[in-house]
Design a protein around this nucleic acid. Sequence first.
DNA 1: AAAACCGCCTGTCGGC
DNA 2: TGCCGACAGGCGGTTT
Length: 279
Amino acid sequence: MPELPEVETVRRSLLPVILDKPIASVDVYYERILQHITPRKFKEQITGRRILDLARRGKYLIFHLENHLDLVAHLRMTGRLIYYSDAAIAMAKHTSVIFGFASGGNLRFEDVRKFGTLDLVTSGEYEQIKGLHSLGVEPLSEAFTVEHLQNLIQDRSTKIKGLLLDQTKIAGMGNIYADESLFMARIHPERPANSLSSLEVQSLHLAIKDVLQDAIVGQGTTLRDYRTGYGREGSFQNKLQIYGKKGEKCPRCGVDLEYKKVAGRTSHFCPACQREQRS
DNA sequence: AAAACCGCCTGTCGGC
DNA sequence: TGCCGACAGGCGGTTT
C-alpha cells in the first residue's frame, strides 16, 4: 500500500496539526503493533512528551519526541495514520492505537490487515529496526544521482524490477511506482539490471524521480485503503499509466497490456514499449 | 547474492 | 446465496 509518495503525504498532512503538541494519552487496542516493547512501557515513556518533528525515511515515519525518543511507524499494507480534530468520532473497526492530545484531537493508527508496526527507540538508534537501519538511498534526494543508480545496477544480473523493490538499494519504491517508472523509461521489468544501456539508466533515473514527485503532488494513490493524514483519498490513481490496467491498451502505443509475476509481485507492462530483448 | 517460500492478518473477488 | 481459493500496495525469516 503506502509507498514513498503516500508516506510523504501523510507526513506533510500530519505535521502542522501535531507539531509541538504533547501526547496526553495513549490507548493500545492491538498490542502486536508494538515491537520490542510492552504497552505499559510504551505508554509510560511517551505520555506527556511533545512531538518536536515528523520525518520520513523510505516508507518509515519518525516522530521525534521530547526526551530523545523516536517513535517509528510503518504502515505496511493497509495502515493509516489519521488526525481527528473531534475525538468523539467513533473508532473505526480496525483501530490499533489512539494518541490523544490535550487540545481535544487525536491521532489514530488504523490497520485492517494489522501488519503495521510501531517502535520506540532512543533518538537515532535504529539498530533494532532492521528495515530502517539498512535502507538505501532516498530517491528524491540529491544523493540519488544517475551515477548512484548506475552503481546499484552495475554487476547485478537480478531483474530490474526486483532491484527497484529492494529497500536496501532504493528507499521507498513499491510495486505501483516500480511499474510506473519502468513503463515511463520503456524498460521491461524482467531485464537483467546489468543489461541496461547507459541511456536506459539515465531514463530510468529520470522516470523514478518524476513518478515519485508527481505522485506526491497528487497526494498519493488510493486504490482502496490509503488515506492522507486528514483522512482524504489521494488522486494519483487517476494518473496511473499502467499499474492495475490489466485488459486495457497501452496509453502510449495501443497494444494490449500484459501482466505477470516478477520477483514475486504482479507486474504490469507493455510488451511493445518495454521489450525484453532490445533490437 | 539471490530466489523461492512462509507467515503475519482481513477483506474482496471470481468461479462454481 | 454460499463456499473456497486466489489474491492484495510490505517485509522479516528460513531454506535452497
